[in-house]
């Protein structure tokens, strides 16, 4: 087990290093693409700014508070997208048959699938998210302590882990439905968009769904509400909002199991 992990991480590192080197050969292209990524992913925040040119609060949240939510989810999502986003292409690979090639190499398949075509330009989203997060932090009405700062860092990292789990589960789903890669977009990109807005905006059933079924609420909603000293709309006990890291581990474990089941299914059906 430990050996598999080591082999996976090593293989992942090898492939990623190769792609970074290949990208840096065309430095101008890399800079333009990263800038483009920064701008495209920042559009959602521009939309928020436009909204706030007409209003002062959305769902009871002011712009700095929403910036905190937005920055947290974008940073987490950006990290997961950078590290694992390409696992999304599994369906394409299954359809054109190139998935078999991954199974021939002495490196765990998930590591290869995630590292393949590693795209450093995705740093653009992370930078954009972190900038907005920083702005939000500086503007919200919170007494910052070292504990709270640490809490924020843990929030972003466990958020990235939860999104990673969603990416892996979405990729695994494509073993059964190779053409349906867009469904996973609903949970990844859709989830990121959802979490940019405060939970008070949404119907309670939806909030319940992303708390208990697909645990996206632990990415930023629950921890950020705690930071901001607000009640969560489901009225959960306070300690729940600190469970991000635990939820992340559970989600990754579940995603890993789904991935294994998917891979097993592929290897018995070959399609």
């Amino acid at each position: 087990m430990v050996e598999r992990w080591a082999s996976g991480l090593r293989g992942y590192g090898l492939i990623v290093a190769m792609w970074i080197r290949a990208t840096m050969v065309y430095r101008t292209s890399f800079i333009i693409n990263t800038l483009g990524n920064f701008l495209v992913t920042g559009l959602d925040f521009v939309a928020l700014l436009l909204m706030f040119s007409h209003i002062h609060a959305l769902g009871g949240f002011g712009l700095p508070e929403i910036a905190l939510l937005y920055g947290a989810t974008c940073s987490s999502f950006g990290l997961a997208d950078l590290l694992l986003g390409n696992a999304d292409r599994i369906g394409q690979r299954v359809r054109d048959g190139s998935f078999d090639i991954l199974l021939l190499r002495p490196v765990p398949v998930l590591a290869q699938a995630a590292a393949d075509r590693f795209a450093p330009r995705r740093l653009g989203r992370i930078v954009q998210g972190l900038l907005v997060l920083g702005w939000g932090i500086s503007r919200v009405d919170v007494n910052w302590t070292i504990g709270k700062a640490l809490f924020t860092v843990v929030m972003v990292i466990s958020g990235a882990a939860i999104f990673s789990a969603v990416f892996i589960a979405g990729a695994a789903f494509q073993f059964w439905a190779a053409e349906a890669s867009e469904v996973s977009n609903s949970f990844t990109y859709g989830g990121c968009t959802l979490l940019q807005y405060p939970p008070t905006v949404f119907a309670r059933e939806l909030v319940r769904g992303v708390t208990f079924v697909v645990p996206l609420a632990f990415v930023n909603w629950l921890p950020a509400l705690r930071l901001l000293g607000r009640e969560d709309p489901l009225g959960l006990p306070g300690w729940v909002s600190c469970c991000g890291p635990l939820v992340a581990v559970a989600a990754l474990t579940a995603a890993g199991l789904i991935w294994r089941a998917g891979l097993r299914s592929y290897r018995s059906t070959g399609s």
Partner: peptide, 28 residues
């Protein structure tokens, strides 16, 4: 299958945006 998946995604995004627009128009 790709069409069905696309429909699903469009619907999910529709819901998310519909709720935010509801909140926005509730304010103004």
């Amino acid at each position: 299958m790709a069409t069905a998946a696309g429909v699903f995604t469009n619907t999910v995004f529709g819901f998310i945006l519909a709720y935010t627009f509801t909140a926005l128009w509730a304010e103004r």
